[in-house]
Design a protein around this nucleic acid. Structure first.
Lengths: 193, 193, 193, 193
DNA sequence: GATGAATGAGAGTTCATTCAT
DNA sequence: GATGAATGAACTCTCATTCAT
């Protein structure tokens, strides 16, 4: 279990990464933003690497949970995909700092531990999405002329780029609103006619 | 025009980013890998930021060139998209260090100049792809039930994720081989039936 | 009088110094090894310096006691020297952590208080050994062609180096066994023929 | 070969250790005393450990040289021992900072590299002294009722303690003067009658 | 008698950069 | 076109110690 301070630390760390990139995540910035001194951070995490690991673990748990919820209910594959997107969009809207971090694996490159962890997260998410898509193909919901692997890359790639663009390109509509429209397009693309 | 040393510097810089992430790109690492001293770097670029700008400019020129070639000839939209992918895959195969950098905008976050530049590159590429797709729709080649904007996000997002995955996940086939198959799926998805 | 915890603290401190040198004696290491928190240490000693003082005092008392026992009985000087060595060897065998500390005055260099204390201990021990040797010379037991001062340096220097060597150089025999042989050599050297 | 700055650095390091003990040897103190900034140190040595290694290497070379000179000439064993002491005393008089460091192996305990190095130096010196003493016994110069090993411990132990005492105990005579007298005593003790 | 949380000072080290040569 | 030496700022992290509970 995490203490309140530990939670605060990774939240502020996310904000820092979001604002200034990974180079902006320093112990000094972190402590200043929280309002404590630098050494105080080390009461709560043994090292900066441990903080990054905690961030990754939190991502991992979050997405795994979303996936699990989707996998275990009786919805159709299409509905699952729809939920998947919606949940992500909602999360990003609620905590925009997530956006710049969650799909930016390149950021975690300092230590082998982190590279390993990030690879694992990517691999697991990919497998989960593929299994949803495969069962959708078996149910005759989804088109079968494209492999589940490719469908997975298409769906997830679209989601990622959309989220990333939303940081760089201004838009009149909100992210969830825009997202809803994009989901409609995605559905149209993967559905069996 | 760039001198030989300038070209060498940005090539080695790309390799460094590729190997160790943006945190691995230090003047020390750079000079060591080239085989000169640190101050010598400053004979060729005024600052580290200038090196990053040069990297972005090179990307910008590269992709703009690819796009221009595609836009100005009389190919069908589908063929243009196909070429677009193929060229990218070939480039990545030839210089794998590109892979980790070209789609990692998060890396350029130190300075406003860089953020501005990267946003501009993304925006321009997006516009170019959209214009290809739009003309494809007008020609009745591509499906019109999905907006060109969305098609663009789908196509480019798929390309990006595919390239990124290829760094983290091992594969039995080569990137161009695998890519060729993916392009077929993309074509099937955006084509008008 | 010392409480149990106070005794435990200086014992563990000795072990730490023995294992990792003076730089290994930190309040953190100390508390971790005892199984309490850092602030808890300060319930028992006001400062780290106080702990070092306690260590020195304990040495002081120990050696003073050994010397006193030897001085006050009616043994010959040779027997006293012999006992002196034997007691030391026994102590070192029983608590090897002593070895690295007792003869390492260089360790106590942080504070004037400590330097003063250590100088005093050395001086007193030297005086005591000299007085034993002097009386041995007066009794015609020990050679008189060498001053008691020099004999003292020879005897104590030999003892110290022997103990120190035993930490760095492996040996087939135990420290007390090897020590017994060395004492024979020392006796042969200082005795009057 | 060492640059001038490198030599200066290890000389000042020796002084610092001598003045304040190993805890006084910090990069800050070092740079301040030399008159440069802290990072400047790292142009000349890669790390603090490297500085300590350089100190040990310098000791190692020094003593090895003294020993070699003694071993290779045709002096009697007694003369060799005499020279050995005299040279050491001269060195300590010339550079008192050496005193506190050369015989204080306990100081180098931070890193396995250092422990290994110091053990090696001790072992080699011991072997060299033993070989001098053994040949003296074979020449019928030195007493044979005590093993060369023990004679070595006695001779070297006396030397060490004498030097160490000279730091703590004031004396009316100079170290070389006092040392000369002690050497006479040592000679009297090890010589064959 | 002990804890959790914090602190000021300072540790070793790396950064991009400058300057005289 | 390059070097050796240096710098100020910043880095992660550890130190002994304090304080409220």
């Amino acid at each position: 279990m995490k203490t309140e301070r530990q939670i605060e630390i990774i939240e502020v760390a996310l904000e820092l990464i979001s604002e200034k990139g990974i180079q902006g995540l320093t112990i000094k910035n972190l402590s200043k933003k929280i309002g404590i001194t630098e050494p105080a951070i080390y009461r709560h995490y043994d090292s900066k690497t441990d903080i990054l690991i905690a961030i990754l673990d939190s991502f991992s748990k979050n997405t795994q949970q979303i996936f699990n919820n989707e996998l275990n209910n009786s919805d159709s594959a299409i509905e699952k995909i729809e939920h998947l997107f919606t949940k992500h969009f909602a999360a990003f809207s609620a905590k925009p700092s997530l956006v710049s971090v969650i799909f930016s694996e390149e950021i975690f490159r300092n230590e082998p531990v982190l590279i390993e962890k990030i690879s694992e997260v990517i691999r697991r998410n990919d497998n989960m999405l593929i299994s949803i898509l495969t069962s959708g193909q078996e149910n005759n919901e989804l088109r079968t002329d494209i492999s589940a692997q490719h469908l997975s890359t298409i769906v997830m790639g679209t989601l990622r780029l959309f989220v990333k663009k939303s940081r760089f390109l201004e838009s009149s509509k909100s992210l969830p609103e825009e997202g809803k429209l994009l989901v409609e397009s995605i559905k149209r693309i993967i559905i069996k006619e």
